[in-house]
Amino acid sequence: MRTAAVIGTGLIGTSVALALTRRGVAVYLSDRDESALRTAASLGAGDVSEPSAPVDLAVVAVPPAHVATVLADVQRRGLASAYTDVASVKAGPQNAAAAHGVDQKSYIGGHPLSGRETAGPLGARADLFDGRPWVLTPTAETGRDALNRALELISLCGAVPVVMDAADHDHAVALISHTPHVVSAIMAARLEHASEDAARIAGPGVRDVTRIAAGDPQLWQEILSANATAVADVLEEYAADLNAAVGALRELTAQDADKQAAAREALVSLLRRGNAGQSRIPGKHGSPRAVYAAVPVVISDAPGELARLFAAAGAAGVNIEDVRIEHSPGQPVGLVTLQVAPESAEPLTARLTERGWTVRS
């Protein structure tokens, strides 16, 4: 691929453009939002001029409700040889594209499963898709050239291609992406009027659960609207479990010992189901989830301390598989928990202790 066009310079569109320019592809940008367009161009994402000839691939990076009309427009103008989109919902845009007369041979639906809480071009990164799944939803009419161009795009962006049916994709993302965002927002909404004391002692648990609630509400309204039925189905199942948990918790205060015992068993069953589901989430590089050992290290909140800790782990010959940072409320220190292979925990603890680090048991 030598040339590409990206229509829409938000987080995903600009990240695609940055990834392509990094690999030497000439990228042409367009967006109705002049400010976003100029910002993306200033970041080195591409050229804002019109290409002098059809580009190899056009990437439509607009909200799901607008994919079909934009596709129809750029195809009518002969912008590219092949077309794809990056909308997080596939069946609706695909059906709408057909209704708008979009040439199905030169178009293939796509969805990179990566993102950030920061919206807009300023949050874009060239490595946003590295190692991440990128779903393609070809139909019986999809041409070989469109498929190959989309596969080349995914390769240039460092992602991993996954081929799915559009409806199956929408049900899957409702479960693993869209519903979690709603649940995160509902949990975060409980904090809006929380007491100052409660907010001050908030720790990693609530931060983990509410992290994605920081997303752009207008963008997420459009995403949820485009996949409303599938998300509602998952939320209905979630609500049933939530109601069962509420009922079990209420029964724990009952005077009847049998009811208390049944309530405890119901809670344990729900928590075990959670264990089982969480264990199915793939680990690093998509491999089965591994069991790591935790090495908690006290660290001061000063420039260079985290780098010094990582350097000490590297000097010990230990690979850090994951890391979590907890800040102590009102104190200039924190706790960095290093996740390492079980056999590495003891020697790493000894090496760090020798070098003056405080390792908690």
Rank of each mutant, 00 (worst) to 15 (best):
R132P: 01
V89R: 01
G123M: 07
L71D: 03
E141D: 15
Q75W: 04
V86H: 09
G78P: 10
A72T: 05
D127T: 15
Q94C: 04
L113G: 08
P133G: 08
P133S: 10
A82I: 00
D103Y: 06
P138I: 10
G78V: 13
A82V: 02
R76G: 08
A119R: 14
H111D: 04
A91R: 12
A99V: 09
D103E: 15
Q94D: 13
A97E: 10
P121D: 03
T142D: 11
A99E: 15
A72D: 06
Q104P: 06
S88Y: 02
A99P: 04
V102S: 00
G92F: 03
P93L: 10
G92P: 03
S81R: 15
D145W: 00
L128D: 07
H111F: 06
R116M: 13
L136R: 07
D73F: 00
D130N: 14
A126F: 08
P138G: 08
H111Y: 05
Q104W: 06
H111C: 11
G110I: 03
G101V: 11
G123D: 09
V86P: 07
A126R: 12
L128I: 07
A126H: 13
A91W: 03
E117C: 04
L113T: 12
A96W: 05
L128Y: 05
D127K: 09
A96D: 14
G143H: 07
S88V: 08
R125A: 15
H100P: 00
A96S: 13
V102A: 01
A97L: 07
S106K: 07
P133N: 10
T137F: 01
V89Q: 00
D103I: 12
R76E: 10
G131C: 12
G110Y: 02
G101M: 11
Q104N: 03
D73V: 00
Q94Y: 05
A80W: 11
A91V: 11
V89W: 02
S88K: 02
H111E: 05
V135T: 08
A96R: 09
H100C: 13
Y83P: 06
A87T: 07
W134L: 08
G123S: 04
G109L: 05
A119W: 08
A97K: 10
Y83C: 09
T137S: 07
G109F: 05
